[in-house]
Design a protein around this nucleic acid. Sequence first.
DNA 1: TTGACATAGTGTATTTTCAACACTAACGTT
DNA 2: AACGTTAGTGTTGAAAATACACTATGTCAA
Lengths: 221, 221
Amino acid sequence: MTQQEREQILAEVGTDVVFFTMRQERLCVLLVRREREPYGGRWSLPGGMVGRHETLDAAARRMLASKTGVEGVYLEQLFTFGGISRDPRGRVVSVAYYALVASDRMPSVRNMPNIAWHEADTLPELAFDHADMIAMARRRLASKLEYSTIALQLMPEKFTLSELQAVYEHILGETLDKRNFRKRLQGLGCLEATGEHHRAGKHRPAKLYRMKSPGRVEFIK
Amino acid sequence: MTQQEREQILAEVGTDVVFFTMRQERLCVLLVRREREPYGGRWSLPGGMVGRHETLDAAARRMLASKTGVEGVYLEQLFTFGGISRDPRGRVVSVAYYALVASDRMPSVRNMPNIAWHEADTLPELAFDHADMIAMARRRLASKLEYSTIALQLMPEKFTLSELQAVYEHILGETLDKRNFRKRLQGLGCLEATGEHHRAGKHRPAKLYRMKSPGRVEFIK
DNA sequence: TTGACATAGTGTATTTTCAACACTAACGTT
DNA sequence: AACGTTAGTGTTGAAAATACACTATGTCAA
């Protein structure tokens, strides 16, 4: 392989992260407003180039930490996007990730006008192929709800079963039967009651639960 | 970003393809013997660098075509491997794919001593992180058997239900009940009897089936 | 204090799906 | 014609998923 050929095939490798959280029972995605061209002014996913001495996972975590300061969240490789013209500046292959953060660990993005949580159902026009990435991440998330405990990564430390059900319903886009839902989730054996109660209005307080092994995602069935 | 920083983050992007077929009821993987260092003499997956003006999928298909001549096979992105030291020559990020080819379209690799099909159960020591790629591809293939018709991509144009069952059993590593298997597969509605029969020994001939939509992989249930 | 309201919490009956299981059919061979 | 070998076929019981409605416990206001 000549040096010239070698130049030919070098590319930039980036990562973009679809960062989900729940806010007011809505699934939200963290977006960053681009300052420069291309797509100046448009919203985009947090992302950037992978360092020469950095793994892909580490790069994705760095993207999150640099924009939000959060660490230790659930992160999973999603898909690698390699369209030839996906970045008008040149060939950039992007390894997309998705991440989940519990709503109580969700970083504040106030005072940062160029970083904001957007409802996943009503996204603005996005830069690059980021809309495709988000769509794929949503599909992956929804399908993982069916066979893993991944939804718990979106919950705060303590939560009620009704809140958990609302998360499932919102992501799946369908309503679930309350009794069947509770039977199934409690049957998994990865939740425990805290003994505390959550008072939220003029009605019966709800029991608070927590994960037995926070951070652990289990496959079920 | 300075030019120097830009150099820092350029990487080579390659693809490696885990190419499966069935031979004598065994799952096999196409391997290529490396001629040069590193890992000179070891077996490796067919792979190479992604061209500057080539999508990732196209690159993966090119790897297959250049080694085997086959085209139009089932191909799916598997995972992107980005370990820092996975290639001792320098930073190479590899987008791994896996591919399936029907046994009757399986290319001949005779007269090519450096290309060979190896049984997936008894692989030699492999170059780079290719053993990880194959292991992941096998897991993915096995799990897709459960919820898609992907196994049909490994079958020749016409096949018997017993042959199909043998493929399932081999990949899943467990025996299946004949009646339940036939009930399920025939119930999918993607097979049709050809009317022909397959004579193979001193016993009752088996009906031959074909896919209604060859090449199409459907999700089930 | 009591009645209205709102959400939490609970069990059973039915349907559907999955799993286990054994014999007859058709061909070749001796 | 009897034997060996694989093809082909239904039923039954168990388990899992689904559908479904009422009581419990708090707040608030009259």
